[in-house]
Nucleic acid binder design. Structure first.
Length: 394
RNA sequence: GGACAGGUACCCAAGUGGUCAACGGGAGCAGACUGUAAAUCUGUUGACAGCGUCUUCGGAGGUUCGAAUCCUUCCCUGUCCA
C-alpha cells in the first residue's frame, strides 16, 4: 500500500483508528483482512449501505481481502431492537435466501470472486459456555451500557434484554475468529468495533484498525437511511422510482449525496454550494444528482429516461409515455371509486373516496370531485389518481 | 417474592361509563403554490353496500340499556424494595 493509497482510503471517513499500524502492516505486502459484517434479516440494500461497500471496493482494488460476514447466528436468535416488538428469529432457509439476494446486490459493487464469505455461526454456535464466560469476564455492564442505543433505551425505560448485551460481544468475537486487520462500517458501529479490539488483545492478537463511514441521511432528511423507517432508496429499485425518490430529498442533502454516493471532488461540491447561495435553483442540481445516481446503478440510457419521465410528469404535468393500459370492448359505465380500486390505483375503496373528494382524481384532465360519481369510460380515456398513478383505457 | 406505574390506531401520546372511529404531534396520502416527489400552506388518514353497519384502545371473560373507561383473570413492560 502506497502513501497515496493511505490517503485515498481516508477520504470521506469519520473515524480512523490505528491508521499507522495498518499502513505499516500493509507495507509488508501481505493482503490485509478487512471485515465487514452484514445482517441477513434485511436483504434490501440501499444507498446507505453503498457508502461503506464502496469503501470496501477501494480496498479490494488495492488487492486486500474483504471478509464478508453474514451474521446468521445472531439472526437465528432474533433481535428485539426498538420498542417491545421482537424481531423475528429467522430460519436457516430464510437466512440462506436472504444472504443470496444480499450478495446479488453487493455483487454490483464488489467482485465476489475475490471476497471471502463467512457465516458467523461457523464459530459462534460452537462456543462453549466456558469460553463465553471468559469473554464476558472482560467487560463490565456499564461498558456495554455506554453504547448509545442502550443508553437511550435505558433512559426512556424501554426494555433491554439480556441477550442483547451479548450481541456486541459476539460481533467482536467475529473479529477474533477471522483475525481481522481492519473493520469497516457505519459510524454507529464504532462502539462494537472498539470492543473487538479489546477482545482481540485478550486473545493475543494485534487489535484491528477501525474505519467508519458517515451515515447517509434518508430521503426524509432527518434520520439515517434505513429500511424500517421507509426513507431509503434501494439499490435495485427501478430507475423511475429511484429517480423520484432522489428528487424527494430535501435540498440540503444534495451535497452529502454528491459526496458520499458520487464521490464528487471538493471543488465540485464547493461549486454547487456557491451557485445555490447565489440563487441558482437547487432543483437543477438535484436533477443532475438524481440522473447521475440512477445512471450509476442502472444504465446511462435509463438514467436519461428517468429524467425525461420526471420532467414530463412532475414539472410539465404531462402524461408519461408508458401508461399502464386496460382493455375495454365497449363504453363502460361505472362508479369511479370502484373502478380505480379494482384496478389497483388505490388500496381500498375508502381511500379512493378520500382521494376523489380531495381532488386527486381526474379523467382526461378533468377533475372528478364527487366520490360517488358514475362515469362513462371509453377507449382513449386516461385516468389519473394522485401524483403519479395513471391508467389508460384502450 | 413485595409495592407502585403502565400496555390506546403506522409511531409518540390524550382520553377514566354515553356527545369515541377516539384530542394533539410526528409520519403518510391528496390539493394549492413552486421550473423539485424540496420548502410553505390547506385538507385528509379503520373497513364496507353513503350517513348506516361492522371491526378497533394488551388477551379472555363479566357488570351495564350502553365500556377504551368499571369488575375478574391472564399475559407483557418499567421503577423501587428484597
Amino acid at each position: 500500500m502506497t502513501k497515496e493509497d493511505c490517503n485515498a482510503i481516508q477520504k470521506n471517513t469519520v473515524d480512523f483508528i490505528g491508521l499507522e499500524e495498518l499502513c505499516k502492516k500493509a507495507e509488508l505486502g501481505k493482503p490485509l483482512r478487512i471485515k465487514y459484517g452484514a445482517d441477513p434479516s434485511a436483504p434490501d440494500l440501499h444507498l446507505g449501505h453503498y457508502v461503506p461497500i464502496y469503501k470496501l471496493k477501494q480496498f479490494q482494488d488495492m488487492g486486500h481481502t474483504i471478509v464478508f460476514i453474514i451474521g446468521d447466528f445472531t439472526a437465528s436468535i432474533g433481535d428485539p431492537t426498538g420498542r417491545s416488538k421482537v424481531r423475528k428469529a429467522l430460519s436457516h432457509e430464510q437466512i440462506k435466501e436472504n444472504a443470496k439476494t444480499y450478495f446479488e446486490q453487493v455483487g454490483k459493487v464488489l467482485d465476489l470472486n475475490q471476497t471471502e464469505i463467512r457465516y458467523n455461526s461457523e464459530w459462534s454456535s460452537v462456543l462453549t459456555m466456558d469460553e463465553l464466560l471468559k469473554m464476558m469476564a472482560h467487560f463490565t455492564l456499564s461498558q456495554i451500557l455506554e453504547r448509545d442505543d442502550f443508553t437511550k433505551r435505558f433512559a426512556s425505560q424501554t426494555p433491554i434484554f439480556m441477550h442483547e448485551f451479548m450481541y456486541p460481544l459476539m460481533q467482536a468475537y467475529d473479529s477474533v475468529a477471522i483475525q481481522a486487520d481492519l473493520e469497516l462500517g457505519g459510524s454507529d458501529q464504532l462502539f462494537n468495533f472498539l470492543l473487538a479490539r479489546e477482545l482481540q488483545i485478550f486473545y493475543g492478537q494485534k487489535p484491528q484498525s477501525i474505519l467508519t463511514m458517515p451515515l447517509l441521511v434518508g430521503t426524509d432528511g432527518v434520520d439515517k437511511m434505513s429500511k424500517s423507517l421507509g426513507n431509503y432508496v434501494g439499490l435495485t429499485e427501478d430507475s423511475i422510482q429511484m429517480f423520484g425518490k432522489l428528487m424527494s430529498i430535501p435540498d440540503p442533502l444534495i451535497i452529502p449525496y454528491h459526496k458520499l454516493i458520487l464521490q464528487s471532488s471538493e471543488e465540485t461540491l464547493e461549486n454547487i454550494r456557491v451557485q445555490i447561495e447565489q440563487g441558482h435553483n437547487p432543483m437543477d442540481f438535484k436533477l443532475d444528482l438524481a440522473t447521475r445516481i440512477t445512471e450509476k446503478f442502472h444504465t446511462f440510457q435509463e438514467g436519461q429516461n428517468a429524467k425525461e419521465h420526471f420532467i414530463t410528469v412532475h414539472r410539465k404535468k404531462e402524461l408519461p409515455d408508458d401508461i399502464p393500459e386496460f382493455e375495454l370492448e365497449n363504453v363502460l359505465s361505472v362508479k369511479i371509486y370502484e373502478f380505480i380500486t379494482t384496478h389497483d390505483l388505490t388500496p381500498t375503496k375508502s381511500e379512493a373516496k378520500r382521494i376523489i373528494t380531495g381532488g386527486g382524481c381526474s379523467i382526461n384532465g378533468e377533475k372528478i370531485t364527487d366520490p360517488l360519481a358514475e362515469v362513462q369510460l371509453q377507449k382513449g380515456d386516461i385516468i389519473k389518481v394522485g401524483k403519479r398513478k395513471f391508467l389508460k383505457i384502450v
